[in-house]
Amino acid sequence: MSDSLIQVRGLTRDYRLTKKREGVTGGLVDLVRPRREILRAVNDVSFEIPTGEMVGYIGANGAGKSTTLKMLTGILTPTSGEVTVGGLVPWEQRLQYTRHIGAVFGQRTQLWWDLAVVESFRLLQKIYEVEESVYKRQMETFHELLDIGDFLHQPVRKLSLGQRMRCDLAAALLHGPRVLFLDEPTIGLDVVAKENVREFLREIRDRDKVTIILTTHDLADIEQLCKRVIIIDKGQVHFDGDLEDLRVRVGQKVRLTVDLRESVASEVLAETTTGLPVRWETAEGNRHHAEFNRSEVAGGEVIKSLVNGVHVKDLHMAEQPIEEVVRDIYRQQKEPSA
């Protein structure tokens, strides 16, 4: 047996669904003979995470990320499989276990809605028996890194999403948990707020050696925070390894958007990058799109030859969105020859 902090083996979770038939007669038929279906939201998931690692758990909508996290936090009992965190089984030793973990579910707050933020913190202090000196020190850190001082005395329901999220993060960490589960902690945040949150997570990862599992739809979160990623699709793990390995495996597709000063024929434009592995797509007026792979050609090189050939007004490079990366991984699995 290994000594990883988090151990997940064969984790599986089914949801039972009743499928509704259409119309009035359908509704009546449903009453007599409901159509039941079983959805396997998480399917035989296994992984291990050693102490102090920060892992990105990613996948498309409905992939089973939240379901996995609910089981890891002890909220949901799995259909089958095993989980131990520090030797505890989350859903069996809930009271013991929850003392040692923190969790943020980006979609909902764990602060008391009607109370001023600081009242929630005081309550958490009581719940986790945080000593006054530790409480003071923690609050100072939160002020410093998350800048929550300004709205500490406002009721939670009056906070903006970004303010609330920062408070929620602080609330999840007040008691100094050893493990942190974050389900979309940057959802709905603006660029600045996202940056604050990332900075904060980096800090607690490096300083306190907190083990963190994070789900997100923002690849930048992963790039900036996690060395390791686990990709899940339709409930199954499709990749588990270093982010760098992932890049090598799928390549680093980049989508380039170019706005030109004057209208230029597509062929002329394509000519500027002859010899480079760049694929041009059909244009929309003076706007052109191209795709290339960073593992084959550097972005700078593409742009250099482009700027030398035509009058570029503006250009924009975008990473392949996370969903597409996942889809590519999935495709590769289906076609083992690729």
Binding site: S4, T51, V85, G87, L88, R178
Partner: peptide, 23 residues
């Protein structure tokens, strides 16, 4: 078991007085 894993196992019980205080 690694050091931290063992640390997590630390039994934790809220004392009676703390429970009263909390509730």
């Amino acid at each position: 078991m690694s050091e931290l894993a063992a640390q997590l196992l630390t039994p934790w019980h809220r004392s009676a007085s703390a429970s009263v205080g909390l509730y």
